[in-house]
Each structure stands twice: as structure tokens, then as C-alpha cells.
């Protein structure tokens, strides 16, 4: 365990590390949005909500994918109507908050019912809030609507294997449908931040590389990698996530495919030693940012010569860093 926190770049990781330094210099970003209260020796987020997740379907989801079964929605603020979404945003803005992740459960066709919320999203933007959305599959109309509403970032999970879409999402769709959605978002000039769930197929690596290669054909603004995390009460409660070394391999591949696009390790990944090792490999692979870094990782970044920066926004908004001074949070006094 301790080895992974040694400030040494292994030979296998040097090309990725050097590529990142050449493109991005020595900055690395750490994120702690208000989805979780976060307090480590290096950083703590504010005790008031700053960037909050909201579900436009409350706790309901028709897909009930095997890795989540809608459980993730339960920890979000529920907005049963556009008026409620606005109310939540107004309250947040009044208290000096920075933005929202507008998410929700999926319909049976893999889409998220966002079209009724577009006017509300436009109003949230007029309040000065940042708005990231989880889109699911989109059609042309929704892609255009998101662009017109001015969303800051559209996040879409891209799956690279048809079997995984059927087995895990129980969705009658193919990788081509996910690619079409990504293409529509990009064509509509929505700043798109695809996500890839590593190990989504019950902990196995199958289709992740295909997903990364597919995404690399599009003009995206950031890429977030997350790791399957067994959730109690789901068919995946006992799956064994990919080993950190396997994840490190995918981090390096992602860095090589996206040499000038920010690549991040997003919110979801297993906790404990697995997380420490994964986070350390993310840094050594030259990823641009990490959400909720494990204890010791910020210190490792500094020891590697990087300049850590902190934000309470959603990590998908990394391309806006430096444009907003309302980042929230504070460095721990120690």
C-alpha cells in the first residue's frame, strides 16, 4: 500500500505522465462537490451545499440497471416538477451556492426526462448557477434544447459493448445508439463530458477500450472515468471491481487517446486501500483531476511536483477552471 504513495513514476507510466505535463503543465485539480461531505487532512468542502445533485424523477427509474437499481437517486434532492427544480436552484443561489447536477432516472428507452425542464434550466443559468446534466440517450430535439438552455456540461455514460448494454442496463439499444447521442450533443455544440464506467460488466473489463476509442472520434470537453462500486441491494453487491493495476492500464490508454482533453477520475469508485492505489495511479497516469481524493493523495501530488487546486464544482466542469472564483471549500488549516 505504502509503495503506491511513493512519489516515483514507474517506467510504464512515464509516457502518460510526460504527455500530461507537456499538454497541461503541473496543475492537478481535486473536486469535492456537495454530494458528499468531505474532510481530509488536505481539504474540506463547505458545510453548506454548494454544488448539489437533483433528480427530476425523484427516486424512480424505469431501467433499474444492475449496478444501481435507482439507489444513487435516493441521495439526490428530488424535483418532481420544473417549478420544484427552480425552487431548489433559487434556494441554492440565495445561499451562495455554485451550481447543480440535474440528473434523474431513465425511461425504458434509456433517455432521462429532461425536455420539460429546459426552461427551468435556462432560468437557473440566469441566476448565475452552473448546470451540469446527466442526459442518458438523447434525440436531436433534446440535444438542441440543452444547447439553447445553456447547460455548462452534458454528461453521458458511453458503453462500448452491446452485451453490457443488454446485461447490465437491460436496454434494447446498441453502442451505435450511444454514439449517436454523443454525436448529436457535439453537433449541437453542447459541451459534452462523456463518462465511462470501468468494470461495468459485473467487474469485468469488456468494452471499455472500445468506449474510449469511440469517444475519441468526437470533440468532447472532458472525459470522466469512474469505477464500478458494489452497492448493497443490487445484483452487483458482491462483484469484485477491476484491480487498481488494470484501472491504471485504462488510465494510460485514456491519456494516450486524449492528449489534450482533460481526463478525470470521477466520483464513483471503491473505497479503502483500493481507492488509495487507484487514485495514486490516476495521478501517475497524468490524469487532470480526481473527485474526492483518498487521504494522502493531495500530498502525493505535491510530492510529485504538481500544483494541487481545489473545487467544489462537478469535475466534468474542469474546462471552466480559472474562469470562476466561487470555488467554495477551504484548505484544511493543518
Amino acid at each position: 500500500m505504502q509503495d503506491c504513495l511513493d512519489p516515483v513514476i514507474p517506467a510504464l507510466y512515464k509516457p502518460a505522465w510526460e504527455s500530461a505535463r507537456a499538454s497541461f503543465g503541473d496543475s492537478v485539480f481535486f473536486y469535492a462537490p456537495s454530494i458528499k461531505r468531505y474532510e481530509t487532512s488536505a481539504y474540506q468542502n463547505s458545510t453548506r451545499p454548494f454544488f448539489i445533485p437533483v433528480s427530476v424523477t425523484g427516486g424512480s427509474c424505469r431501467l433499474k440497471c444492475d449496478h444501481c437499481r435507482g439507489g444513487i437517486l435516493k441521495s439526490m434532492h428530488a424535483a418532481a416538477s420544473p417549478a420544484q427544480l427552480l425552487e431548489i436552484g433559487e434556494r441554492l443561489a440565495r445561499r451562495g451556492g455554485g451550481g447543480l447536477l440535474v440528473s434523474g432516472g431513465s425511461r425504458a428507452d434509456g433517455s432521462v426526462p429532461l425536455s420539460g425542464c429546459l426552461d427551468a434550466i435556462r432560468e437557473l443559468k440566469e441566476m448565475g448557477l452552473k448546470v451540469a446534466v446527466h442526459t442518458g440517450l438523447v434525440d436531436e430535439r433534446l440535444a438542441d434544447g440543452l444547447a439553447a438552455a445553456g447547460v455548462d456540461s452534458a454528461m453521458i455514460d458511453i458503453i462500448g459493448a452491446n452485451e453490457t448494454i443488454k446485461r447490465v442496463y437491460h436496454l434494447n439499444a446498441s453502442t451505435a445508439d450511444f454514439e449517436r447521442s454523443l454525436a448529436l450533443l457535439c453537433q449541437s455544440n453542447v459541451k459534452t463530458s462523456p463518462h465511462v464506467v470501468l468494470g461495468l460488466d459485473f467487474g469485468n473489463i469488456s468494452g471499455e477500450m472500445q468506449a474510449l476509442e469511440l469517444i475519441s472520434n468526437y470533440d468532447i470537453w472532458s472525459l470522466a472515468l469512474v469505477v464500478i462500486t458494489p452497492q448493497p441491494g443490487t445484483p452487483m453487491r458482491a462483484v469484485v471491481p477491476p484491480r487498481p493495476a488494470e484501472l491504471g492500464g485504462l488510465f494510460r490508454e485514456a491519456r494516450a487517446l486524449f492528449p489534450r482533453t482533460p481526463v478525470l477520475l470521477g466520483c464513483a469508485r471503491p473505497a479503502g486501500d483500493h481507492k488509495t492505489e487507484t487514485d495514486a495511479l490516476a495521478l501517475k497516469s497524468g490524469l487532470n483531476g480526481i473527485a474526492y481524493p483518498a487521504e494522502g493523495i493531495v500530498e502525493l501530488a505535491a510530492a510529485l511536483g504538481l500544483s494541487p487546486r481545489f473545487s467544489e464544482h462537478c469535475c466534468s466542469l474542469i474546462f471552466q477552471e480559472g474562469t470562476d472564483d466561487r470555488a467554495g471549500g477551504q484548505l484544511a488549516s493543518c
Binding site: I35, K36, R37, Y38, E39, T40, Q44, S75, A271, G272, K275, Y292, E295
Partner: peptide, 11 residues
């Protein structure tokens, strides 16, 4: 000690 959960990471 410390704790990591769905909504909390900290001491």
C-alpha cells in the same frame, strides 16, 4: 478513525 460512505468522507 475515519469513515467513507455514500454521503460522507472524513474523520
Amino acid at each position: 478513525g475515519n469513515l467513507e460512505s455514500g454521503k460522507f468522507i472524513g474523520p
